[in-house]
Each structure stands twice: as C-alpha cells, then as structure tokens.
Simulated assay, not measured.
Amino acid sequence: MMLDTSAAGVFVIAPTPFADDGALDLDSAARMTEAFLEAGATGLTLLGIMGEAPKLDAEESLRFAQHVITRVGGRVPVIVGVSAPGFAAMRSLARGAMDAGAAGVMIAPAAGLRGDDAVMAYLRQASQVVGDAPWVLQDYPQLTSVAISAGMVTTLANEDARLVMLKAEDHPGLDKLSAIRAAEAKGARRLAILGGNGGIFLPQEIERGADGIMTGYAVPEMLVRVRELILQGEREAAHDLFDLHLPLIRYELQPGLGLAVRKHALMRRGIIASAALRNPGPKLTPATLAEVEFILARLARRDPTLRL
C-alpha cells in the first residue's frame, strides 16, 4: 500500500512506548496499534515529533517501525518520519521503513534554514535521498523556525510527483491552507492536506479544505467523529463535540510537557503500560497529575468514548 494524494481521514501519530526503565515496550506498541485502528484511524505515523525519534538509535527506530508495520498488516497506510540532521541517516531509515512495508515517509526541513532558496534546495535534496518513496512535507515552523510559503508548497508539488501530502502545522496556518487550495483550483497539482498542531484547529481545517488530520491526541475517536460530522453537514454537532475536548487538547499542547500528558492519558485508557518518556524528559508533578485527572474525569462524564 503506497501513499498517494487520495489520503484522507485521521492519521494518528503514535508515540513510542517505553517501559519505566526506558526500554522499548513492543507489547504496548502492538496494543496501541490495535487501539488506534479500532478508534477509526485511516493511517498511522511513526517517529514523528511526538514519537521521541531523536531519543532512539538507528536500530531501535527501525525495529519499532517494523514492529508496528507488521502489526498493521496492510490495513491502513503507515508513514515513517525520517527527518534527521544528516542525509545518511535519513536514507538508511527511509530504505528500511519502505522495505518493511511503509506507505511513505515524512520529511521536515532542517532547523535554521534561512531564505526560500536554501529551504527549497534542502527539500529537493532530501526528496532525492529517500528514493522512490512517496513523501509528506511537514510544515512545522514553530519547531524548525523554517518558513514555507503556500507558493513554495505548490512549486514543490508541481515539480515532484512523489510529494503526495502536506502536514500543515503552520500557526496561524488556515489562510495558507486556503491559499494552497485556491492555487490547486487554478491548476496546481493537488496534494492531500492533513492538519496537525494537536488538533487545535481541526474543525476549521476541515472546513477550509483539509482532507483530515495527522496528530497524536489521546482520544482519536473524537477526531474521527468531528471530521465525519462536518462532512455530513452537522457543523454545530461537530463543534459541540470538539469543544468538549478542548481542555485536554490545550493541556496536551503545552510545549515541553504535552507528550508526558498525552502518554499519561493513553496509559489511563489502558492503551500503553507506562507513561514513561525516555530521558531527558519532563516528569509530571503531583499538581499537574491532579489537573490532568480532573480533566479526564470531567471529559469521561460528558463523552462516553473516553473510557478510563
């Protein structure tokens, strides 16, 4: 199953489960995979920003990706993030992931690139490094400090048929999304567009023309249902459901702390065995844990999807 521009729905970004001692927890990875598929995921993304990819060595990264891809068994496409400081590591992981059955790879520009020419040159080079693999452009300037305009996205799309998806995480980015769709209406090659940013703009992104979302929110069932409701014309119901989840979405979006919160919520749902982050990583204080537990309990009373 190869990724193409028809991709749509909810691609859940999977965290990398660790045991309390920091070892890879592949049993939790298998359980997590099944839980996300049961939640309605139309794809999975591994080794993204929320996958703690920089904390894994090359062998662990490939072993984790192979394990999940095997568990998925072709039921949905699996994207593997291959961004790396050097092209040798990117090439090796991309080749290994595609050989294991990945549907495509995801590339973000290297942090700190300055100027359109430098950004475009890097992305063109990186796309050649991953060979024939379909690829996803991750536009996440809050992390990379790299600006990619709507025009740059459409130029790359027109140049390279292997570029099949944009992970749109500029913030604010809704007008950029609209600009890309407007350019496509005038003849630019169409890309699948999936939003991100923890889901904070999910309803608006779908209404602006996004095909879905790629994020790791701890209750992906909500993401699936909100998108379906909007596509069915049930806008008020979609926004009402989304609004119930905003406190947890907001808490998960805290820079530096969000992944620890998300892993705790996934542990409380029985999806992973431990909320451990591999060091260096933050620990939730008792006060923070109490707040998260209050949010989860309150949400569970209002949305039966969230079973604790």
Score class of each variant (00 low, 15 high):
Ala23Asn: 06
Gly216Arg: 00
Met165Ala: 13
Ala182Pro: 01
Ala126Lys: 03
Leu231Glu: 14
Met106Ser: 11
Ala218Gln: 05
Leu194His: 12
Thr33Gln: 09
Ile193Cys: 03
Gly195Cys: 05
Asp99Met: 14
Pro15Arg: 03
Pro255His: 11
Glu159Val: 00
Asp240His: 15
Ala19Val: 08
Ala182Leu: 06
Ala89Tyr: 03
Leu3Glu: 02
Ala260Trp: 09
Thr285Tyr: 04
Pro304Cys: 07
Met267Gly: 12
Ala275Met: 11
Thr5Tyr: 04
Ala58Asp: 04
Arg31Ile: 01
Ser28Cys: 07
Pro141Ile: 10
Gly104Asn: 02
Ala287His: 12
Gly104Ile: 04
Leu257His: 08
Gln204Phe: 03
Arg302Pro: 05
Val72Gln: 08
Leu194Ile: 06
Asp243Val: 13
Ala111Asp: 11
Thr215Lys: 04
Asp20Ala: 15
Ala276Arg: 14
Ile206Tyr: 01
Gly131Asp: 13
Ala168Asp: 02
Gln204Met: 12
Val105Thr: 05
Ala161Gly: 09
Leu241Tyr: 07
Phe36Gln: 05
Ala168Leu: 02
Asn279Ser: 15
Pro304Arg: 09
Glu60Thr: 00
Thr288Cys: 12
Pro255Arg: 10
Ala30Lys: 10
Ala185Asp: 15
Gly22Ala: 01
Gly104Met: 06
Pro247Arg: 05
Asp117Tyr: 11
Ile13Tyr: 11
Asp132Thr: 15
Glu52Gly: 00
His67Ser: 11
Ser61Met: 13
Ala188Leu: 08
Glu169Asp: 12
Thr5Met: 06
Gln66Ile: 07
Ala290Ser: 13
Leu244Thr: 10
Tyr140Gln: 09
Thr45Val: 13
Leu177Arg: 00
Thr33Phe: 07
Arg114Ile: 04
Ile180Asp: 03
Asp21Asn: 08
Glu60Ser: 01
Asp4Lys: 06
Leu299Lys: 10
Val119Gly: 01
Thr33Cys: 15
Gly86Val: 13
Leu46Val: 04
Leu123Gln: 02
Leu244Met: 14
Glu205Asn: 10
Glu205Val: 06
Pro17Leu: 07
Ala7Leu: 15
Arg227Cys: 14
Ile180Arg: 03
Ser274Met: 08
Lys176Val: 06
Gly96Gln: 04
Ala133Gln: 12
